[in-house]
Nucleic acid binder design. Structure first.
Lengths: 174, 174
DNA sequence: ACCTTAAGTCAGTGTTGTTGACATTCCAAG
DNA sequence: CTTGGAATGTCAACAACACTGACTTAAGGT
């Protein structure tokens, strides 16, 4: 079961072996791989969250607040792709529990800017470390070239809006 | 099952550029890429399911029943990684609606073997086609080498149990 | 002043997951 | 042949996380 390795113009219509990676069977395997891998991807942080009163939604919020300190609620909503009611439920508990601080905006006082407290940063680190450990193991096992390809395919899979969101996080935050 | 033989020994401790793909920043980007990409991955079938009385759980069940016709419930439970109560709710509606047929096992009459009906196969095709179209677009955009890497990393990310499940689906089904 | 935007809130609903308890059927070992 | 345990199915209750819709408050911008 060897994967073809030819640099070939993608404009060519499927005929030979070269596009074997586009057969329905190959695509289906990719779909299943994505499904199974996503479970592995979330399992480490999920294990930590078990027992605490938080879930995956809290983890995601913490992650992006850590990533872009001072981010306002609107931006976080766009990134997470959920409704404000859904986010609010999560955010409220995080603020009540002293993991997140919500400061009134300086330029625009309607906005609330979100920051992790020390406690919040501590939990975020625990979660992040666990997830990074998993990711690191997978990266190490697959090697740098595979990782580059992995990233390329994932980026191509994103919806355009999310791709630009992803890009803006990548190079430089706010 | 050929794992790539890479130029660089993975036992070397991070120092030069060679392991730049293992920096915390790189890992974090991979994590975010996975998060955003998964949304793109599910969006096409989700759009179809909208309006029908089914959800993602129904899609997953249909997918794997289509993949391994005659699969018993226990196997499906292992693959999906949910409780039997959770699966049963989904399966029951699919059977009631005539999308899935549940036949008593021949060798072991306790077992139920699951098959798609014509109607079930039709819906499964619609969903599968939509998801494959998305996947194909991403694959085409990234190219064959990237796809090979993508698959390698995903496989490394799976939990061991899921990796073997994935493998058994890949080469040969039941 | 008026309209819009940002944020938060209340109420209701749906999907998907979880436990726990229990019944049924049936294979296989004693 | 009896019995223990496995496979399946079902009922009930509950939790996490999403949704829609309607509304308020505060602070812009024009």
């Amino acid at each position: 079961m060897s994967m073809t390795k030819r640099g070939i113009g993608m404009s060519e219509v499927s005929s030979g072996d070269a596009l074997l990676f586009l057969t329905d069977e190959q695509l289906r395997q990719g779909i299943e791989a994505m499904f199974f891998a996503y479970r592995g991807f979330t399992s480490a942080p999920d294990a930590i969250l078990e027992g605490l009163d938080y879930g995956r939604a809290h983890h995601r919020a913490l992650h992006f607040i850590a990533r872009v300190p001072g981010m306002n609620v609107k931006r976080l909503l766009e990134i997470l792709g959920v409704t404000k009611q859904s986010l609010n439920r999560v955010l409220r508990t995080l603020i009540e529990d002293g993991l997140v601080e919500s400061r009134v905006g300086t330029a625009d006082k309607r906005e609330r800017h979100l920051y992790l407290t020390e406690t919040g940063a501590a939990l975020e680190s625990r979660l992040s470390d666990a997830q990074r450990r998993q990711m690191r193991a997978a990266y190490r096992q697959a090697g740098p070239d595979a990782v580059a390809g992995f990233r390329q395919v994932l980026e191509a899979m994103m919806e355009p809006r999310m791709r630009s969101t992803y890009g803006s996080l990548r190079d430089g935050g706010a």
